[in-house]
Amino acid sequence: MRIAHLSDIHFGGENVEAVAAVREWLATDRLDLVVVSGDLTRFGEKGEFASAAAWLRQLPEPQLVTPGNHDAPYLAWYDRLFTPFARYERAIGRARFQTHLAPGLAVYGLNTARGVQPRANWSKGQISRRQVEEALAWFAAAPAESLKIVVCHHPLTEMIGGPMTGKVWNGEAAAKAFAEAGVDLVLSGHIHAPFTWPYGYGDGKTYAAGCGTLSVRERGVPPSFNLVETDVAEIRVTALAWSGSKFEPQQTWSLTRR
C-alpha cells in the first residue's frame, strides 16, 4: 500500500517549482491515497483557496484533505471569529472530519485548528474529547485488519528538537487514546519538518509521522513530502526533499507493525 502525504503548501507563498514537480511526481506513481494535512493557504484568502482547489483537482484520487490553522482567514476578522472554515469548505470540502475506507485501509481526518481560542497564539492546536471519541467509534466499525490512520494538522505530541511547536491542548490524551485503541499511524504537518516516532503508550506500535512543507516558509529543512509504504510487517516513511530540480529521498524510517 502506498500513500503520499503532503502538507503546508501555503498557496500565496508556495514553492512554485516544488508544487508543480510534486504534481507531476504523483501523476506518474501508483498510489492508494493522497493525504494533505492542512495549511493549503498562507492567509486563508479566497484567491489562495482557488489556487489550492485547482491544484488538488490535478492530483490523483482518492484524496483526504484536512484544514490547518492558516486555512482560517487571517485578515477577515468577522469570518475568522464566526465562520473560520467556511471558505475552506466552499473551496476544498468538509472541515470538521473526513474519512476514507478501502480494503485494508481506514483513514480518519480531523481538524485540530481553531479560528480563535482563549490563548494568545491561535496558531496552536486543539483536539477535543468528542473528536477523539468520534474517531474511535468510526475505527471500531471499520474492518479489524485495516491499517488505521489518523490525519490532523498539528502533531499531537511535540517533535523533540523541532523548529516549532504544536502545543495541542489535549494532544497527549488523544495520542494515548489512539495508541490504546490500536491506531497505527498519526499523520500531521505544521512544523515544516519530517519526522517519525512511536507514542509511549499501549504496545508502542502507534507512530506519529510528520510531513515537511512545499512552501517558501522553510525552517532549516528543504521543501518535501512523505511517501508512506506498508506491508504486513512494517510501515516505511520516506521524506522526499526538493533539490531544486527534482525530489530525492532524504531519509527513510522503518516502523514495525503490530
Rank of each mutant, 00 (worst) to 15 (best):
M1E: 04
I3H: 07
A4D: 01
D8M: 10
I9N: 06
F11L: 11
N15Y: 13
V16Y: 06
R23K: 13
L26V: 13
T28K: 06
T28A: 14
V34F: 12
D39G: 10
T41E: 08
E48R: 05
E48Q: 13
A53G: 09
A53M: 03
A54S: 14
L56Y: 05
Q58M: 10
L59D: 05
G68L: 02
H70Y: 07
Y74S: 14
A76F: 01
P84M: 09
A86I: 01
R90Q: 05
R90T: 03
F97D: 07
H100D: 00
L101N: 05
A106S: 09
G109C: 01
L110Y: 09
T112F: 02
T112I: 02
R119G: 07
N121K: 15
S123L: 01
S128Y: 08
Q131K: 07
A135M: 11
L136I: 09
W138G: 07
E145M: 06
L147D: 11
I149M: 12
I149W: 11
H154N: 04
E158W: 14
G162K: 14
P163V: 05
A173L: 08
F178R: 08
A181V: 09
V186Y: 04
P194Y: 10
Y201W: 15
G202V: 08
D203P: 06
T206A: 14
Y207A: 11
C211M: 04
V221T: 11
P223M: 08
F225Y: 10
L227D: 01
D231C: 11
V232R: 15
R236Q: 14
F247I: 08
P249G: 11
T252N: 02
L255R: 12
